[in-house]
C-alpha cells in the first residue's frame, strides 16, 4: 500500500490508538512530571514549589531504606532466577524423558497473578514459621527471603522458556566441532553455549531486573511492608506515600520520577549491551 493512498485513512487506522495513548500515557506522564514540582492534594490545587519535593524525598528514611532494600532484592533475585532458570533449561534441552511435562509445570506459576501468589506463599511461610513461634512479618529479613523465594517460583519458568529457545538455536555443528576437538562438557558450556546464548542472557537479566524493581502486587499481598514498612519495596513505598499520607502527594510523585529514571537508566544500559553483542556476532 503506497504512502499517498494510505495517508488519508489516519482517522480510521491510527487515531483510536493515538487518542487512547494520549489519555492513558501522554497526559498522565506530562501531568505527573509537572506535579512532581508542586504541592497538591488534588490535581486542581497544585502550587509549584520547585525542587522541595525532591529534597524532602531524600530526607525520608523509609524511602532510602526502600531504595536499598529494592536494589538488594533485585540483585539477589536476578542472580538466583537466572542461575536456576538456565540450569533447568540446560537439563530440558538434553532430551530427557518427560521434558514437555517439566516445561509445562515450571512455566505454570507465571500465569498466576501477583496478589494470588502473595497469599499462597504467605500461607506456606507462616505455616513453617509457626513451628518456631514466628510469623513472616516478624522481621524484614523474612519478608526479603520470602519475596525472593516467591519470585524464583514465579519467574524461573519464564526465563527457562527463553533460555531453552536460545540453547536450541545453538548450531549442533558447533558443539560437535568442539567435541571432536576434545572439549569437556564444562568447556563446551563455557566457551560455546554461553557465548551463543548471550542475547538470551541479556534479555532475561533485563526482564528479571525490571520486574524486581517494579514489583508491587506480590509485596503488597505477602507482607504489605510489615513490620512497620521495613519490607517495603520502592513501588509500595511510592504507593503508600500517595495514598497513605495526606499532604505527601507531591513527594510521592517526585519519588515516582526518580524511580522512573532508575528504571530508564537500567533499560538504556541493557539496550547498549544488547547492541554491542549484536555487532560482535
Amino acid at each position: 500500500m503506497s504512502k499517498k493512498e494510505l495517508r488519508p485513512y489516519f482517522p480510521l487506522f491510527a487515531l483510536p490508538t493515538f487518542i487512547a495513548f494520549i489519555i492513558g500515557f501522554i497526559v498522565p506522564l506530562g501531568l505527573g512530571m509537572y506535579l512532581s514540582f508542586c504541592k497538591f492534594t488534588t490535581v486542581n490545587d497544585a502550587v509549584p514549589v520547585g525542587l522541595k519535593n525532591y529534597s524532602d524525598m531524600f530526607k525520608d528514611p523509609e524511602f532510602i531504606h526502600a531504595l536499598w532494600y529494592t536494589a538488594l532484592f533485585a540483585i539477589v533475585s536476578v542472580v538466583t532466577i537466572n542461575f536456576f532458570g538456565f540450569a533447568i533449561a540446560m537439563l530440558l534441552t538434553k532430551g530427557i524423558r518427560g521434558t514437555n511435562l517439566f516445561r509445562t509445570v515450571f512455566f505454570m506459576p507465571n500465569l498466576i497473578g501477583g496478589i494470588v501468589l502473595g497469599y499462597i506463599w504467605q500461607l506456606i511461610f507462616n505455616g513453617i514459621l509457626a513451628h518456631f513461634d514466628l510469623t513472616l512479618t516478624f522481621s524484614e529479613v523474612y519478608g526479603f527471603w520470602g519475596l525472593v523465594i516467591l519470585m524464583n517460583w514465579q519467574q524461573i519458568g519464564y526465563v527457562m522458556i527463553i533460555y531453552i529457545a536460545g540453547i536450541q538455536n545453538v548450531p549442533p555443528e558447533l558443539i560437535e566441532a568442539a567435541k571432536i576437538d576434545g572439549a569437556t562438557g564444562r568447556q563446551i558450556l563455557g566457551h560455546v553455549i554461553l557465548p551463543m546464548v548471550m542475547p538470551s542472557i541479556t534479555i532475561c537479566t533485563f526482564i528479571t531486573l525490571t520486574n524486581s524493581f517494579k514489583l508491587f502486587d506480590q509485596n503488597l499481598a505477602l507482607t504489605n511492608g510489615l513490620p512497620g514498612n521495613r519490607s517495603e519495596l520502592l513501588s509500595l513505598n511510592i504507593y503508600n506515600t500517595f495514598y497513605g499520607r495526606v499532604g505527601f502527594e507531591g513527594v510521592g510523585q517526585a519519588k515516582a520520577v526518580v524511580f522512573s529514571l532508575i528504571v530508564g537508566v537500567i533499560a538504556i544500559i541493557q539496550l547498549v549491551l544488547t547492541h554491542r553483542k549484536e555487532v560482535q556476532q
Partner: peptide, 15 residues
C-alpha cells in the same frame, strides 16, 4: 519502560 507508579496518580485522575 516507564513504570506504572510514574503515571499511577495522574492516570487515575484523568480516567
Amino acid at each position: 519502560i516507564v513504570p506504572f507508579q510514574m503515571v499511577m496518580y495522574t492516570l487515575s485522575k484523568t480516567a
